[in-house]
Amino acid sequence: MEIKKPTIKGIPYEEWKNNDYLEDMVRQLNENGTNVVVGCLDDLINWGRSNSLWPLTFATSCCGIEFMAVGAARYDFARFGFEVTRASPRQADMIMVAGTITHKMAPVLKRLYDQMADPKYVVAVGGCAICGGPFKKSYHVLQGVDKILPVDVYIPGCPPRPEALLYGMMQLQRKVKLEKFFGGVNRKQDKE
């Protein structure tokens, strides 16, 4: 059974900005093929996972306030099933790296990531988490969390608007839908 193109309710497929990237992922995953029963189970699991992404309450600076605003009444990410923010990394599904990561914080963040249970996803929120942002020249700021963690979705902005955060979360949902739980590799590892 083939993995289909990831869609999100209410938004036309063409309006997403990164379709070719995901289509490439779909093509790679479909190369090996899966049998129908297992494929159905995969679909069910991916549906569950993508609709129940519980974020870790983690924020270091300005973006954290926007993260709270997304949870609050006007934007309300509970609509997507994200509202159960867990304070314990063991119970969270994704970590939103909202804010600057400094050299002192980097090992702590890595440790938090290691403490999370699989499957786990990382969203880099804001310029600081993506590349250091306005603090690129600082002696104590990590130049992007992708140096220490595998990042799934980048949400640019300083800080990103709540709408951008929601868009990023939906992109993560689309990406989660392209996974194989039974058999098959999800990602081709680069030879090192």
């Binding site: 569950g48 129940s52 099933g81 403490q115 249970a117 739980f181």
Partner: peptide, 15 residues
Amino acid sequence: QVFADVFKMLIKEII
């Protein structure tokens, strides 16, 4: 929604 949570929870790693 809750069913989605249950499916996710069932296959989440137990550390």
